[in-house]
Every structure is written in C-alpha cells, then in structure tokens.
Amino acid sequence: MFYCLAEGVKIGETFMQALIGLAVVFAVLAVLIVVLQLFQRLFRLKFLNKNAAASQKSVSAPGTAAADSGASDELTAVISAAIAAYLADENADGDVGEPPFTLKNIR
C-alpha cells in the first residue's frame, strides 16, 4: 500500500480526485462553449468576424446583406411570408396602391 506525504491519504485516491476535477472542468468548459454558441445563434452575433462583417455591410446590396448576416433560409421565408400577408391584408382593405402614371383624359 502506497501513501502520499499527506497523512492518511492514499496516492490512488489522489489521482482519482485529480482526474475527476479535470473532467469536471473540461465538461463545464464544453457546456460553456455550447451555451455561447447557442447565444451566438440566438442573437446572430458574430464574435470572430465582427469587424469584417461591419466593413462589408456598407458596400453590399440589401439582398446580399441578409445572406451575409447569417440569416437562415427559414428566417428569410418567414419574413417574406409576413410581408406578403401584410400586402394581402392591405389589398383586402381596398387599398390597391397608386397607378404608376397618370394619363390625360380625352374630353
């Protein structure tokens, strides 16, 4: 039987506790990474490419900006559907917009 310098503590138990401690630390780190990634997805934050994205934003077309910002296809579809529904409601209310030009009536 081996004993360490600390009185009454066996060497094998010390190793086990060290291993469990390391495992717990790495597990917590892994959970933190997952949580941070979830936050990243949730809030559309781009920690690593923040500066690069900001510089591109000013020169890209509106249509491409949405794609570059990481918006998913689902989100685009949802927004399109919402706009379509809004326009449909607008038309249903009888507001059909203005004609694109005005002609002179022949009297």
Partner: peptide, 14 residues
C-alpha cells in the same frame, strides 16, 4: 375614331 367620354382613363380596376 375619337370621342370624349366621362369614364376616367386613370380609373383603377380594383
């Protein structure tokens, strides 16, 4: 060929 009327040419056909 041309005869004026009362119907507005810009009438929107809702």
């Amino acid at each position: 060929s041309v005869e004026g009327g009362n119907d507005d040419v810009n009438r929107v056909c809702k």
